[in-house]
Each structure stands twice: as structure tokens, then as C-alpha cells.
Computed example of a mutant assay.
Amino acid sequence: MQTYLSAALDIGGTKIAGALVDAHGRLVVRVARPTPADKDGATVMRAVAGVVAELAAAPEWDRVAAVGIGSAGPVDASAGTVSPVNIPGWRDFPLVAAVRTLVGERPVVLVGDGVAMTAAEHWQGAARGHANALCLVVSTGVGGGLVLNGRLHPGPTGNAGHIGHISVDLDGDPCPCGARGCVERIASGPNIARRALANGWRPGPDGDTSAAAVAASAHTGDPLAIRSFERAAQALAAGIAATATLVEIDIAVIGGGVAGAGDLLFTPLRSALRDYATLSFVADLRVVPAQMGTDAGVVGAAAAAQQSRLDAFVPVP
């Protein structure tokens, strides 16, 4: 008997990836295209349609039962719209409706990219086997998602678990979201680099001022670079501890480019977490690196689609 597949789309500012994913999380077919450089809304949608067309041309397409989309945000799953910061041509763009015109009668599920990563890590990665988890993407921004009672918990709009915009410094710098002292304003890659530069760190001869360059300096012992990562770790620890206290997660999984700094981030993060997660029911909280890598977006979008499809067949009591 043939098994059902999920079609998955992972849409970001750099690339648009697609895959057909089986019930075990294996990618049966995968395709990708660069996100158009001009970021014009219609042009980006044509690229999405091209990815879907490549998937639909595969002989396995007839086995696709549902379609999942993980998109850079903000997203509004209840309205089926997206307004990605890094795709300026899409503002309240009706992505779900647009994809539905391409995939026939199949149900289409939309989640934010942080929620998609969470679904992937819970299904096949570092959060597998954990009933309550927080997963974070620490990169250009800081996103996240929740698993509660063994199930992905995206919330009504698909943004639950968006830890990047928890305020951890009440008098901190203004965040583009409108609040102050958000985790993202302290712990994202660009803000790690911004803070290092503001405190006197200087790049090497190549002039690279990225968080990766700050990490390289920190690995050589530069105290200014080390302190910038320590401050990022402290902000992440405060946000993780607050989340754990609210919903009793037992593991936090961290992925994204900043997590690639390894112990430079994780060692001070775990140390700071001991200062914030002090109550007995969060004292054993673990923080671990993500495992799914670049496949997290499509695997997670497929997982969200599978969960939604199964939910549709569960009778309401």
C-alpha cells in the first residue's frame, strides 16, 4: 500500500526550498531556488510557484495529502497571510490562498519558520521524545516555537513561542517591534556584532563585522568579543527561564547561525540559566544544540501539515 506524503515549502529571504516528505521525515524529493533579489511580491510568488511546479512534476506528487508552509514572519496563520521582514514586497500577502491555487484540493497549513524548526526538532531532532520543549532559531533574528503535551503548539496565528520578543531588559534599547530590551535586540547575530563594535571591538584586516567575525575573535581570547556573546547568552537564558516557568518545558533546543559558535554561546548560557531557572520544577531544564540543520524548515512544515491532517480526522467530543 502506498503511503501518503506531505509537500513542504520553506520560504525565506535567501532561498525558497520545497520537498516531498514521507511519514518518517525522509525527503523523497527536494528542490530549491534563490529568493529573487528584488524581493518584489509578484516575482517572489512566481519563484514559489516554480518550486511547487517542480514538486508537482515528480511521480510521487499523486501521494501528497497535505501541504505545509514554513515562512519567515510575521505570519498570521488564522488569516493565511505573511509579512516577512526580509521580503518587503509581501505585506499581509495571502500566501495560503495563492498556494491553494497551485495544489488543488489539498489542505494547506501555514506556520512561522521558528514553529517549523520546532516541529522538525520534535519529530526527528534534539527534542524528540520530549513532551514539552522550546526550540529557538538564533540568527539574524530570534524566533522560536513550543511543543506542549507532546504536540506542536503554534497558537491561533502561528506565532506561539516567539521568544525573541520577550523583554528581558525593561530599560533596554528600543526594538524594531516597538518594545524595549527584547531578547532579539540583545542576542541576534547583528546585535551581538553591534554591541561588540559599540564597546570597542575592531574587526580584522578583512573588515568583517558579522557575528561570525566576533565569534572568531572571541575564540582567540578577545575580551570584548567574549563579553558580547556572554551578554547574548544571558538574554537567551532569561527568556528561556521565563518560558519554562510559564509552561514547564524540560528542554530548550537552539539552532541558527549564532548557535554555530558552540561552547562560546552554550557555556555562558547554561551558567546564566542556573541563575534564572531556580524553581524546583525548572531546575533540571536542559539546553542543547539543534540537530536538523538546513532541512529543519521543510521537515517542520511537513510535520505541521501531517499534524493538521490527522487533527481533521479526530472527532470532536
Rank of each mutant, 00 (worst) to 15 (best):
Q2S: 01
T3Y: 12
L5F: 07
S6I: 13
A7S: 01
A7H: 01
D10S: 02
D10A: 03
D10G: 04
I11C: 04
I11Y: 08
G12F: 04
K15E: 15
K15M: 10
G18H: 15
A19Q: 01
V21A: 06
D22L: 13
V31M: 05
T35A: 10
T35Y: 06
T35I: 09
A37V: 11
A37I: 08
A42S: 09
V44L: 08
V44W: 09
M45Q: 13
A47S: 11
G50P: 03
V51R: 04
A53Q: 12
A58I: 00
A58C: 01
E60F: 11
W61F: 11
D62W: 00
G68V: 09
I69W: 10
A72H: 10
G73A: 09
S78P: 04
A79R: 07
A79S: 03
G80D: 09
T81S: 06
V85W: 10
V85F: 09
D92H: 04
P94K: 00
L95A: 05
V96D: 01
V96I: 00
R100P: 06
R100H: 08
V103N: 00
E105T: 13
R106M: 11
P107C: 14
V108F: 14
D113I: 09
M117Q: 03
T118C: 14
T118P: 13
T118A: 14
A127M: 01
G129N: 05
H130K: 05
H130V: 02
N132R: 12
T140S: 00
L146I: 08
V147W: 00
N149E: 07
G150Q: 01
T157A: 15
N159Y: 00
G164D: 15
G164E: 15
I166L: 15
S167R: 01
D169H: 14
L170G: 06
D171A: 10
G172D: 11
P176D: 04
G178Y: 09
A179Y: 12
G181S: 09
V183Y: 04
E184L: 11
R185P: 10
I186T: 04
A187R: 02
S188R: 00
N191L: 02
R194Q: 14
A196S: 05
G200R: 03
P203C: 12
G204R: 08
G204F: 12
D206Q: 13
D208E: 14
S210H: 07
A212R: 14
A213R: 02
V214H: 11
V214K: 12
A218P: 12
L224E: 03
A225K: 02
R231E: 15
L236N: 13
A237E: 03
A237K: 09
A238P: 02
A241R: 05
T243P: 06
L246M: 15
D250M: 00
I251F: 04
I251A: 06
I254K: 00
G262Y: 08
G262F: 07
G262C: 08
D263A: 02
D263W: 02
L265C: 06
T267L: 09
P268V: 05
L269T: 04
L273M: 14
R274C: 08
Y276W: 10
A277E: 09
A277N: 06
F281R: 07
V282M: 11
A283L: 12
R286S: 10
R286E: 09
V287F: 14
T294P: 04
D295V: 02
A301N: 07
A301Y: 04
A302V: 05
A302R: 02
A303D: 11
D311L: 04
F313I: 05
F313A: 03
P315I: 02
P317L: 05
